[in-house]
Nucleic acid binder design. Structure first.
Lengths: 215, 215
DNA sequence: TTAAATAGTTAGAATAGACTAACAAATTTA
DNA sequence: TAAATTTGTTAGTCTATTCTAACTATTTAA
C-alpha cells in the first residue's frame, strides 16, 4: 500500500500539473514544506512506480497512472469535505484539515457509503469537481468574476482558492455558492468591482474577484 | 504528535492490562504481529515518555498517563464504530477495520461532533463502554451467559469478543444486543446451553456462552 | 535442583523519509 | 555572452521503526 507521504506528493504534483502540465521540483518542495533533496528522492521513487516521467533537470510529467491515482485520493478528500458539511454540520472553512487526514483512509466501502448518503454529488462544498471512482474528473468551464463586465448578472459556482482566511472572509461578506451577483461598476485603476447580491452592495478587490468562479 | 505506531502499542498494552494489570512483551508482540525486539525497543521508548513503567525482565505496568492516553484513542475508535453503525448504516461486523484507521485522526472537533450527533452514547455497537474525554472508562458489571443457571432470563448487553467471524455467527443466529435470552438447559458434559430467545430455541457452545455478556 | 523451555534483551542491519552541505546545470540579467 | 541567480542533484547523515541472530534471565518440569 502507498504511504501517506507518497499520496501527499502525488496530490501536490497532480494539482500543480492542472495549471501547467509540467511540474517543477521547487514548487513541490514549497507546497509540502520539505527540502529540495527530499523532493528529488521521492520523485525518483514515484517515477520508479510509473507515476511520473522523470529526466534529470527536466520538468516532471505526471503519467496517466499517476493522474488516476491522484484523482482517487482527491475524490476521497472532496467526498469527505462534502460529507462533513452536509451530514455533520461543519462550515466550509472547517473541513480542509480533517479531509486532509481522512483522504488517506483505505476503505472503499467507507467512501462509497459517503457517496451514496450524499446522493452522488458532483461538487465539493467549494464547488470543485469530485473525481469519479475511475479517477476521471469533470472539467469546469466557469470563469472568474474578474472577467465580467458591468451589467452582467452571474451566479457564484466555485472558488479558485480555498484557504481558511479566504473562506472566513467570504462568510463575513455572506458570499456562498449559489449567490446571484450583479456587476455594477469596475474601477479602471485597480480593477476593484462594485457588486450587488442578496440585496446589498459590496466592493470586492481584484484579487477576490479573480478567485470567485461564476457562470 | 504521537505516531500511529506508538498509539497502536499503547492501545494493545492498555487492553492487555485490563485483564491482568501486568503486561508481558510476548503478548504485545503477538497482538501487533511484530518481533520481540521491536516490542522491546518501543517499550523503552514508551517508558521514556512516562506511559509505562519498565524494568528489565519484569512485567510492564501502564502508568495513569499511559492509561489516559490509551483510553482517548479507544474513545475515538468506539465513537467511530458507533457512528458507522448508527449514522452510516454499517453492520457491527464491518466497522472494526475502518475504526482502526479513523482512531488515529487528530481532530477533537471531528470526534466531538460525532459524539454530539450520536447523543453522547455510553457504549459502542458491541456493548463496550466508550471512555469519556478525560480518558475515564465506566466499569461494566455484566457476567457471561455461561455463568447463568437454567431458568434464568437475561438480556444480552455486550460481547467479550468481537472478531468478524464471531459477529457473523451472531448475525446468523439473530443474536443482537438487547435480545432477551432464557436459559433452558445446561449440558453437564460440555457446558453447551440450550436457550430460547426471539421465539426460537438454539444450542450455544460453552465458548460462545463465555463471550456473551448479559445482565 | 538441575535441565529444558520460555521470555526478554542486546547488537547490528535494513528501509522510509527527512535533512544539510556541496556542487552542477539551466536560466536570467546586465 | 559572461556573470549572477535560480533550480536541481548528489553524497552523506539522522530518526523512526522494523528485522534477524545471538545471548541471558526466568520459569517450568523431570
Amino acid at each position: 500500500m502507498n504511504s501517506q507521504s507518497i499520496e501527499n506528493y502525488l496530490k501536490v504534483i497532480f494539482n500543480q500539473a492542472i495549471s501547467t502540465d509540467e511540474v517543477n521540483t521547487t514548487g513541490i518542495a514549497q507546497a509540502l514544506e520539505v527540502s529540495l533533496p527530499s523532493v528529488n528522492s521521492m520523485v525518483k521513487k514515484l517515477a520508479g512506480m510509473g507515476l511520473l516521467e522523470y529526466q534529470k533537470y527536466k520538468p516532471l510529467k505526471i503519467t496517466d497512472k499517476g493522474r488516476k491515482m491522484a484523482a482517487r485520493i482527491i475524490r476521497k478528500h472532496r467526498l469527505t469535505e462534502m460529507y462533513l458539511v452536509e451530514k455533520m454540520g461543519f462550515g466550509w472553512e472547517e473541513v480542509h484539515d480533517i479531509a486532509e487526514q481522512l483522504e488517506h483512509i483505505q476503505s472503499p466501502v467507507f467512501f462509497d457509503r459517503m457517496d451514496e448518503l450524499l446522493g452522488y454529488p458532483q461538487r465539493d462544498p467549494h464547488g470543485s469537481p469530485i473525481p469519479n471512482k475511475n479517477g476521471q474528473i469533470a472539467v469546469l468551464e466557469y470563469r472568474p468574476l474578474a472577467d465580467c463586465q458591468p451589467g452582467e448578472q452571474v451566479e457564484l459556482k466555485a472558488l479558485g482558492h480555498t484557504s481558511d482566511e479566504f473562506l472566513k472572509y467570504l462568510n463575513s461578506k455572506e458570499l456562498a455558492l449559489g449567490v446571484k451577483v450583479e456587476v455594477l461598476e469596475v474601477e479602471a485603476f485597480d480593477r476593484n468591482m462594485k457588486v450587488e447580491y442578496s440585496g446589498h452592495q459590496e466592493v470586492l478587490s481584484a484579487l477576490v474577484c479573480s478567485k470567485l468562479l461564476v457562470s
